[in-house]
Design a protein around this nucleic acid. Structure first.
Length: 517
RNA sequence: GGGCCGGUAGCUCAAGUGGUAGAGCAUUGCCCUUUUAAGGCAAGGGUUCUGGGUUCGAGUCCCAGCCGGCUCACCA
């Protein structure tokens, strides 16, 4: 694929031959630069309103560069479209206007060649704004053929592997990444305005903490030590809260050595932010304002379509995890009350009926018997929540109050120590954010880590490691703090109506390309 | 890793129940000074993903493998 063979080799040889002919005409093959007066979007936005008459009177001179995307020769004249800045502008090249040498160049152009044009603007008989060329400049050769012009580039693998081709021919792909950039700028702008300081903390960590996931391992030669690519910046950001940076955020990559899916890429972008003297209720309020701000900035609206759904950021639902389970519990699995959820034996007995409903109605994998019997009440509750409620959470919904056992870094609820002050935000059936009142009692934190250590010894590779250095930091006194992480790729998916995370990551991880000999 | 679907010209796709592998675009040559999926005439281009098997005969049927997509699981 990367090295052309067979027929495409022949195409390359044809184009190399043209390149030699272009050289023989006296053109420099890979010139250093091209001075332009306008970009293609500038010409389109400035002169699209002008009539043929006003253009003929003004005879606006332009120097403009772009990639040749269409060629329509007509004997001793011809048209082409140049593409730049995601837009296209037509040029008209005629022998008597550009001269023999430049017209020979026009005839040697291939789809994909970057060129420069000097000329004046006019409208063709069909009314299209066009550059009447007076000089052509050769800027580089496309030795490999462009994607097919009718169907564009459809092969999903090539779209991801050779994203530059995807960007060249699929205008909406370019718009997705422009919007992603705008989204990130809006997030930074919002947090800066709230008095947050952007920081950078280690990507390579001696312990992979701050989340429950399996890490990537690497090695430092001089120190002869293994390091982990971070699964989260969380524990470092809270060390900064201890240090008195009362509002910090980091917007960067995390790495998790887990499966790949439409919602998971091994490296993904997370924005985590921590605010001293706040709790998770404050983070809910902040999240609502933040999401409304970015939707308004990026889309100009609080409402948008996501697949078949119309989503609105006007209103955010709130349920505790237990409320959500009761609310969405399927009739097919019998009646369920809040009281039933407090009785783990009762809940366990209902799993078979729930599994039967799930496999027939939803088609997912059931909760296994060994999971139900081995795991803690909190883990069972979370599994049941994900099974019955998650796919209902299309409109923005905060799920509050998670079980203690699945939340080793969050503070307990004062009136119910089996649950913690934590929420996750769901939109479009996806988990978008995760936040809690940060646990700042070092003794309690050590107990939580010890519990995680037990899970680890039982073989749970994603259980949290004990981080004594972090406990030491907490022991200097961390103020009460609210913290949150927002999955930027998923938020981008929502705001661009993308249904695979690979469509919002320029170069998603792929299996290595098979080498052609 | 499991399930489902797919792999035919450079690209997008066709080829009843097994019977000479085709089309459009792209490419090459010629004609054409306002076209835009420009047009006209002509030409070249294939180990049908790989390896076995069944058959007189396989793009088509069987087995194994490779690659990709979707989906489920782990996870955010």
């Amino acid at each position: 694929m990367s090295t052309p063979d067979g027929e495409s080799r022949e195409l390359t040889m044809q184009r190399e031959k043209k390149l030699r002919s272009i050289s023989e005409l006296g053109f420099e093959l890979y010139p250093r630069k091209f001075d332009f007066t306008h970009t293609i979007p500038q010409i389109l936005s400035s002169y699209s309103g002008e009539t043929a008459e006003s253009l003929a009177a003004a005879k606006v001179q332009v120097r403009v560069a772009g990639r040749v995307m269409t060629i329509r020769p007509h004997g001793k004249a011809g048209f082409a479209h140049l593409q730049g800045g995601g837009e296209r502008l037509q040029i008209y090249v005629r022998l008597d206007a550009v001269g023999e040498r430049d017209f020979e160049l026009y005839k040697l152009l291939d789809l994909g060649d970057p060129i420069g044009v000097v000329g004046y603007l006019f409208r063709t008989r069909t009314g299209e704004l066009t550059v009447h060329a007076e000089r052509l400049y050769f800027l580089a050769k496309a030795l490999l053929p462009m994607p097919e012009k009718w169907h564009g580039l459809a092969d999903v693998e090539i779209r991801y592997r050779q994203r530059y081709l995807d960007l060249m021919v699929n205008a909406d792909v370019r718009r997705v990444f422009e919007r992603r950039s705008k989204l990130i700028r809006a997030l930074r702008g919002f947090l800066e305005a709230e008095g947050y300081l952007e920081v950078e903390t280690p990507m390579m960590q001696p312990l992979a903490g701050g989340a429950m996931a399996r890490p990537f391992v690497t090695h430092h030669n001089t120190l002869d030590m293994d390091l982990y690519l971070r699964i989260a910046p969380e524990l470092y950001l809270k060390r900064l809260i201890v240090g008195g940076l009362d509002r910090v955020y980091e917007l960067n990559r995390n790495f998790r050595n887990e499966g790949i899916s439409t919602q998971h890429n091994p490296e993904f972008t997370m924005m985590e932010f921590y605010q001293a003297y706040a709790d998770y209720q404050d983070m809910i309020e902040l999240s609502e304002r933040l999401l409304r701000h970015v939707a308004q900035t990026v889309l100009g609206s609080l409402e948008f379509d996501y697949g078949d759904h119309h989503i609105s950021f006007e209103k955010f639902e709130r349920f505790t995890m237990k409320e959500a389970v009761v609310r969405f519990w399927p009739q097919a699995a019998g009646d369920l009350t809040m009281a039933d959820l407090d009785d783990i034996q009762n809940l366990r007995q209902r799993i078979p009926a729930l599994n039967a409903w799930f496999s027939s109605e939803i088609g997912g994998a059931p909760i296994t018997e060994s999971f139900v019997n081995q795991c803690s009440p909190g883990e069972v509750l979370q599994a049941v929540f994900e099974m019955v409620a998650e796919h209902h959470l299309i409109q923005p919904t905060f799920i509050l109050d998670f079980p203690l056992e699945v939340s080793p870094l969050a503070k307990q609820k004062p009136d119910d120590p089996n649950f913690v002050e934590r929420f996750e935000l769901y939109v479009g059936g996806m988990e978008i954010a995760n936040a809690f009142s940060e646990l700042n009692d070092p003794a309690e934190q050590r107990n939580r880590f010890r519990y995680q250590q037990l899970l680890r010894e039982k073989g749970d590779l994603s259980a949290h490691a004990i981080d004594e250095d972090y406990i030491r930091a907490l022991s200097y006194g961390m103020p009460p703090t609210g913290g949150e992480g927002i999955g930027i790729d998923r938020l981008t998916m929502l705001l661009t109506n993308s249904h695979s995370i690979r469509d919002v990551i320029l170069f998603p991880l792929l299996r290595p390309e098979k080498t052609s000999s």
